[in-house]
Amino acid sequence: MPMKFFAFILLAMISGLVSAAEPASAGIPDTLEERIKPCIICHRDADLIDRDAYFPRIAGKPAGYLYNQLRNFRDGRRYYQPMAILLENMSDGYMREIAEYFASQPYAYLEPVAPALSPDETKSVETLMYSGDPERDLPACSACHGEKLMGLQPAIPGLLGLPHAYLAAQFGGWRNGGIMRGQIPDCMSEIAKKLTQEEVNALVQWLPGLPASGQSAGADALTPELAQRCRTILSGQEVAR
């Protein structure tokens, strides 16, 4: 064993202490960054994208969340054609690696856009966001997505730094059953269906108004009751059939 180790060291020295990004062939680096070019054509840095873009930032989101979404797209539980086609023949292991890569990436945040909301609308959104509505069994958004709304490790996404169009589409999907099909319980779908259209419109304008900063909160920030309510998300379980 030591012999092998020394031989390895020797070889590494001879070959010029190769960097991790050794070219695989003809100048193509053998890196994950090169391999995920198909992802970053859409999910690129905020400074390269149009403010009206649809695509969400994925850099810096919790790895478990990203991995679950990749599996959901591939396995038909979450529907978006471009993602389904790209992921069709991916393995779990490769998707896990890709999820961890994006989770660890720093990113340039979208600049906040001041929402065009009346003071009443703003107040009602803030109530939903930080207190919820016990009468309708609506928990505060911050109870799951973190006080700073930057998500919770390992599987709950942050809500900031996302384009308005994307947020609106996700609410539409949850209300119509187009996201997390067949997942039981499907906490976000239940919540979205209890919101009025006016509340949804206000939420998706209000969220892009906040500057994104900081990290996802730790998993212990979640109350046992909510952890139970969203157990399918947290466990990354397969669809309940």
Partner: peptide
């Protein structure tokens, strides 16, 4: 239009891929 990855297989577990250009 759609890009794609070759299949992840034992012989090519981490394929390089083609970006989808339909939006661009």
């Amino acid at each position: 239009l759609y890009g794609g990855y070759p299949p992840a297989t034992a012989g090519n577990p981490r394929p390089y891929g083609m970006p989808p250009f339909q939006h661009f």
